[in-house]
Protein backbone atom coordinates (compact mmCIF):
# COMPACT_ATOMS: atom_id res chain seq x y z
CA UNK A 1 0.00 0.00 0.00
CA UNK A 2 2.42 2.67 -1.19
CA UNK A 3 -0.39 5.27 -1.10
CA UNK A 4 -0.54 4.95 2.67
CA UNK A 5 3.15 5.71 3.21
CA UNK A 6 3.80 8.92 5.08
CA UNK A 7 7.20 10.58 4.75
CA UNK A 8 8.31 13.01 7.43
CA UNK A 9 11.33 15.23 7.62
CA UNK A 10 12.43 18.29 9.59
CA UNK A 11 13.44 21.16 7.31
CA UNK A 12 15.16 24.36 8.36
CA UNK A 13 14.70 27.84 6.95
CA UNK A 14 18.25 28.92 6.04
CA UNK A 15 17.68 31.95 3.84
CA UNK A 16 18.07 35.35 5.47
CA UNK A 17 14.65 36.70 4.59
CA UNK A 18 12.77 33.67 5.94
CA UNK A 19 9.72 32.01 4.42
CA UNK A 20 8.45 35.09 2.63
CA UNK A 21 6.17 35.25 -0.39
CA UNK A 22 8.52 33.87 -3.06
CA UNK A 23 9.69 30.79 -1.11
CA UNK A 24 6.07 30.00 -0.24
CA UNK A 25 5.19 30.33 -3.90
CA UNK A 26 7.97 27.88 -4.87
CA UNK A 27 6.87 25.36 -2.24
CA UNK A 28 3.22 25.63 -3.33
CA UNK A 29 4.14 25.20 -7.00
CA UNK A 30 6.12 22.04 -6.19
CA UNK A 31 3.39 20.66 -3.91
CA UNK A 32 0.66 21.33 -6.45
CA UNK A 33 2.40 18.98 -8.90
CA UNK A 34 1.90 16.17 -6.41
CA UNK A 35 -1.33 14.21 -6.09
CA UNK A 36 -0.97 13.34 -2.41
CA UNK A 37 -1.08 15.57 0.64
CA UNK A 38 1.79 17.86 1.67
CA UNK A 39 1.74 19.56 5.06
CA UNK A 40 4.25 21.91 6.67
CA UNK A 41 3.92 22.43 10.40
CA UNK A 42 5.36 24.88 12.85
CA UNK A 43 4.38 23.71 16.30
CA UNK A 44 0.60 23.46 16.31
CA UNK A 45 0.23 25.56 13.14
CA UNK A 46 -0.30 23.27 10.16
CA UNK A 47 -0.32 24.56 6.59
CA UNK A 48 -1.47 22.77 3.46
CA UNK A 49 1.68 23.25 1.37
CA UNK A 50 -0.41 23.51 -1.80
CA UNK A 51 -1.92 26.75 -0.46
CA UNK A 52 0.18 29.89 -0.64
CA UNK A 53 -2.20 31.56 1.80
CA UNK A 54 -1.70 28.82 4.40
CA UNK A 55 2.07 28.70 3.95
CA UNK A 56 2.31 32.43 4.61
CA UNK A 57 0.64 31.94 7.99
CA UNK A 58 3.75 30.05 9.20
CA UNK A 59 5.76 33.32 9.36
CA UNK A 60 8.96 31.27 9.59
CA UNK A 61 12.13 33.30 10.09
CA UNK A 62 15.64 32.11 9.38
CA UNK A 63 16.60 29.28 11.70
CA UNK A 64 13.04 28.00 12.16
CA UNK A 65 12.57 24.23 11.99
CA UNK A 66 9.43 23.02 10.26
CA UNK A 67 7.99 19.53 9.99
CA UNK A 68 7.34 18.42 6.44
CA UNK A 69 4.84 15.60 6.01
CA UNK A 70 4.12 14.06 2.62
CA UNK A 71 1.69 11.24 2.00
CA UNK A 72 0.91 9.48 -1.24
CA UNK A 73 2.71 7.50 -3.87
CA UNK A 74 6.09 8.88 -4.97
CA UNK A 75 6.09 11.01 -1.83
CA UNK A 76 9.79 10.34 -1.32
CA UNK A 77 10.58 12.27 -4.52
CA UNK A 78 8.54 15.24 -3.44
CA UNK A 79 10.03 15.30 0.05
CA UNK A 80 13.49 15.41 -1.57
CA UNK A 81 12.42 18.21 -3.89
CA UNK A 82 10.95 20.37 -1.14
CA UNK A 83 13.87 19.66 1.22
CA UNK A 84 16.22 20.77 -1.54
CA UNK A 85 14.32 24.04 -1.91
CA UNK A 86 14.85 24.74 1.79
CA UNK A 87 18.49 23.64 1.74
CA UNK A 88 19.28 25.87 -1.24
CA UNK A 89 17.70 28.89 0.43
CA UNK A 90 15.13 28.87 -2.37
CA UNK A 91 17.69 29.78 -4.99
CA UNK A 92 16.41 28.25 -8.20
CA UNK A 93 18.45 28.04 -11.39
CA UNK A 94 15.63 29.58 -13.40
CA UNK A 95 12.58 31.45 -12.20
CA UNK A 96 9.30 29.96 -13.47
Amino acid sequence: MSDAVIHRRTVTVVNEQGLHFRPCQLIALAAQQFSGSVVLSRGSTRADAKSLLELLTLAAERGTNLELEVSGSEGSELIEKVSQLFASGFQTPSQP
Partner: peptide, 17 residues
Protein backbone atom coordinates in the same frame (compact mmCIF):
# COMPACT_ATOMS: atom_id res chain seq x y z
CA UNK B 1 13.51 43.81 9.48
CA UNK B 2 12.60 40.56 7.66
CA UNK B 3 10.68 39.31 10.69
CA UNK B 4 8.26 42.25 10.56
CA UNK B 5 7.67 41.60 6.87
CA UNK B 6 6.89 37.93 7.59
CA UNK B 7 4.55 38.83 10.45
CA UNK B 8 2.75 41.34 8.20
CA UNK B 9 2.23 38.68 5.52
CA UNK B 10 1.15 36.18 8.20
CA UNK B 11 -1.36 38.64 9.61
CA UNK B 12 -2.90 39.45 6.25
CA UNK B 13 -2.99 35.78 5.18
CA UNK B 14 -4.60 34.67 8.44
CA UNK B 15 -7.44 37.18 8.06
CA UNK B 16 -7.89 36.43 4.37
CA UNK B 17 -8.67 32.82 5.29
Amino acid sequence: RPGDHLRGLENISRHLR
